[in-house]
């Protein structure tokens, strides 16, 4: 047997969440004394592929070709499933990205595999049982899920496993797999990716604003603070419902769940639905003028004060810290 990791690329490059998933898959391979094989589909150059060796992949299967340049869920699933069979891989790991969430269920069906989406820790393997900790109830809880099938598909949540470099090198091989005409029914017309902003699901730091900011015209200071910290911007649901910010920034139970190292909540009350989406954040800072705001109960650090006074001062303090560092 072996472990297969699908390494999704974004515009030909691998993101940190992929290195996390490779590190994680390496650890699973070690648990089972076996090899780790990576598979990349699309247009990724040889150096980028070989670098996956640093995180523990022994071999990288490179699948390229004009038709496969961009993510087509069905076709990619066919290729990954075939690679898993050829490599005798009974564990397939992916990153729980938007695309990964489309692939994992299709792979599960193709491979007769139990699927653990939203995994946040290494599987526990003992007495023949294979159990994975995954998020449940929109971040309000975790479930320990036993996968009882021989084949298994696991999708790891970004920012939940630490990248470590083993210093190895990977051997890169071309791989071709059969695809069916019907795998290409969905056609991509356009891809819009903003490259100048940190994307919210990947972000290590998130600066988030709520209704306390009064209106979209006041987001300048949120963006400035985010830029200084290399952070993504986010918001509460009423903010995106009102059209102050795009829906893609709305975090919470009915929005995006994030697990950054640092979540800074400004003018957000801390409703249970909001907290669900951010409870996996490592450190939470709350700035709110109401000392009774529920958010303070789950915060690590807090400032009771008016955002319009505190945030500009915080920006100044970060600038000062960066100048002295």
């Amino acid at each position: 047997m072996s472990v297969l990791i699908y390494t999704e690329n974004a515009g030909g490059k691998f993101k940190k969440s992929i290195f996390e998933a490779v590190t994680y898959a390496r650890a699973i391979a070690d648990q089972n004394n076996t090899n780790l094989v990576a598979i990349s589909i699309g247009d990724v150059d040889a150096a980028e592929l070989a670098a996956l060796g640093k995180y523990g992949a022994e071999k990288v299967l490179n699948v390229s070709g004009e038709k496969l340049k961009n993510f087509i869920n069905q076709a990619y699933a066919s290729i990954i499933a075939e690679a898993a069979k050829k490599q005798d891989a009974n564990i397939v790991v992916l990153s729980n990205t938007f695309s990964g969430r489309g692939l994992a269920p299709r792979l599960g069906v193709k491979l007769d595999a139990g699927v653990a989406d939203g995994a946040v820790a290494l599987p526990e393997q003992n007495n023949g049982k294979f159990t994975v900790k995954k998020t449940a109830f929109s971040g309000k809880a975790f479930a320990m899920v036993e996968l009882t099938s021989t084949n298994k598909v696991i999708a790891l949540v970004p920012n939940s496993y630490k990248v470590t470099e083993t210093g190895g090198t990977a051997q890169v091989e071309d791989f071709t797999a059969e695809t069916k005409e019907s795998d290409f029914k969905a056609m991509i017309k356009e891809i819009v990716r903003s490259t100048d902003k940190v994307s919210l699901p990947d972000a290590e730091i998130v600066v988030s604003g709520g209704r306390g900011l009064k209106g979209p015209e006041n987001w300048g200071m949120i963006q400035e603070l985010a830029e200084l910290l290399g952070a993504a911007t986010a918001c509460s649901k009423p903010v995106s419902d009102a059209g102050w910010r795009p829906h893609s920034e709305h975090v919470g139970q009915t929005g995006i769940a994030v697990s950054p190292n640092l979540y800074i909540a400004i003018g957000i009350s801390g409703a249970i639905q909001h907290l669900a989406g951010i409870s996996s954040s490592k450190v939470i800072v709350v700035i709110n003028k109401d000392p009774e705001a529920p958010f303070f109960k789950v915060a690590d650090y807090g400032i009771v004060g008016d955002a319009f006074e505190v945030v500009p001062k915080l920006i100044a303090a970060v600038k000062e810290y960066k100048a002295s560092a």
């Binding site: 309000k140 975790f142 320990m144 409870s279 650090y301 400032i303 303090a317 810290y321």
Partner: peptide, 29 residues
Amino acid sequence: TFSEIISYETPAPRGQVKLVAADDTAKLV
């Protein structure tokens, strides 16, 4: 079927919040 939920956990509670004065943002940093 291929999966069974064995048990659940709730997120670990956080400690008491550390409050910083509104005019001392340098302290927070």
